[in-house]
Amino acid sequence: MSERAGEVPSRQELLSRAALTVFRLNGQFLAVADELAEPGGLTAARWQVLGAVLPEPLPVAGIARAMGITRQSVQRIADLLVEQGLAEYAENPAHRRAKLLRVTGAGRDAVSRIDPAHAEFAARLAGELGAEGFAEAVGALERLSGAVGALTAAQAYGPGAGAGAGSGAGAAPAPAPAPASGAEPGHRPSPSGA
């Protein structure tokens, strides 16, 4: 990615830089989330799925959609959480075959043990970026995610798709979900904001 002083990067360069930065950030957040989840006896992936059902029980497919990970990944993690007694399956009045996953008291206790370190890391990150800078960074990431989601939902990527969507040599492919690290696929930091 050659960027000379004062030269505006091309759209392809910006896409490549955005993708690489998000992949690196994903890895950084996974490492932080795994460390933060330790006091609760959880992994980042288990914390993520438990966090999704803290407000209300959800079907596995709903958790996967909300988090942008595969249903199969969520199913494996949900089954492990149920085995550990941190979550349980409940009847779903809206769909007979798609049971709801709901957190148990033990699951709530596990997540609550993560809160002090989570709050402390959030304060340190806000101190590093400044409160306004932190909010701006989160807003930019949310807008980027929304834009990529809109384009991929409309399948507006690939050769010949959309105006200026070039596919020249050296261009990075359109960002795909970053591969998960660790034993449990689909890791991402906690939905509670790790």
Rank of each mutant, 00 (worst) to 15 (best):
G62T: 09
L141V: 13
A61P: 01
V74E: 00
F121P: 00
Q84M: 04
A183V: 10
A169D: 11
A172I: 02
R17V: 13
G170E: 06
P175I: 13
G182D: 04
A163E: 13
A44T: 03
E7R: 11
L129R: 09
A171R: 11
E35M: 03
A153C: 07
L15E: 06
V148H: 09
Q75A: 15
S10H: 05
G158Q: 04
R124Y: 02
D79H: 09
S181Y: 07
A156R: 15
L100P: 05
L141M: 11
S181R: 12
G139H: 13
R46Q: 15
P191L: 14
G68C: 00
R76I: 04
A78V: 07
G139K: 12
T21L: 12
P177V: 01
V53F: 04
L15Y: 12
A52R: 01
W47E: 06
A52L: 00
H118Y: 12
G27R: 12
L125S: 06
A78F: 07
L151Y: 14
L25E: 09
E13M: 10
L36S: 06
W47T: 04
R97A: 15
A183I: 07
R24Y: 12
A169Q: 10
G168I: 02
P173T: 03
G105D: 01
Q28Y: 09
L14F: 10
E7G: 03
E136S: 14
P159V: 14
L58P: 03
A194I: 07
A163L: 13
P191S: 14
A172C: 03
